[in-house]
Design a protein around this nucleic acid. Structure first.
Lengths: 129, 129
DNA sequence: CATACTGGTATACTCTGTTATACTGGTTAC
DNA sequence: GTAACCAGTATAACAGAGTATACCAGTATG
């Protein structure tokens, strides 16, 4: 190993403490769980009181029944939401957020905050160079 | 229009105030900007002091040069980062975060926080049913 | 001479998230 | 009897995010 390389590695260890690797891991874990175009909007919708399938669907313009169905299924498997069927005629299906799901609240809030500021910024200076 | 449908629409307007649509829009805007597997890790890395191409690459295990190159280019176009070339021999290229980029700080922080809690939860109860 | 560093590009491929469209089975309304 | 609601499923196709691998020009190390 060259002195240069050795020096670089030492520098890396010093400037790259363990916490940085842990934080990257945590960040990537989160991205993995809430990744995709629809997860957070769905969670947000359910937390806002939309509990029925078609209700959620209508509350998120652009989503297809297929995507909603798939995401709900996966989120149920991951204990993010609970699916309750009431045997009325016809059957009533309700989706509710679990406590685990609500832990995303702060992230969603921050993202909404960012999105609003971002939109304002775009309006004020559409093409700043 | 049926009374039932009319009633439903009124209920929807009442329970679905304008702010909910705005918030969904803001959320989706944000998802669009920071979407994908690599954006936030790259921003995080640069903000943590990794400014050279290979430095960033090494700090994010698993990323390919192609993805990093593509993302950096797009992020530069979107004024998220600044690319500075110094004509040393060989040339030195430095990427730095713009102030705009740093506005993601809170989101990243929340996501790291969530990821750490999530991992702890997994360790404590790997398969809770 | 071979290897490894710098900052990337080129080519080809996979994979899966996402879309589009149609359909099911039962109920209620017109 | 036809249209619309509910809660979805089925099938096919697409687009682009992401991967794998090799390569370029130049410099330095051994």
């Amino acid at each position: 190993m060259t002195d240069k390389k050795r020096g670089k590695e030492i520098a890396e260890v010093l400037s790259n403490p363990r916490s940085q690797k842990d934080e990257l891991q945590a960040l990537q874990d989160t991205i993995y769980v809430i990744g995709g175009k629809w997860r957070l909007p769905i969670i947000n919708s359910i937390c806002n009181g939309n509990n029925r399938f078609r209700e959620i669907e209508r509350s998120i313009p652009g989503i297809t029944t297929r995507m909603l169905s798939r995401e709900l299924k996966e989120m149920e498997a991951n204990q993010l939401i609970k699916r309750t069927v009431t045997p009325t005629v016809p059957v009533t299906v309700e989706y509710t957020a679990t406590g685990y799901c609500r832990t995303f609240g702060d992230i969603i809030l921050e993202m909404i905050k960012w999105g609003k500021a971002h939109r304002k910024k775009i309006i004020r200076s559409p093409e700043k160079d």
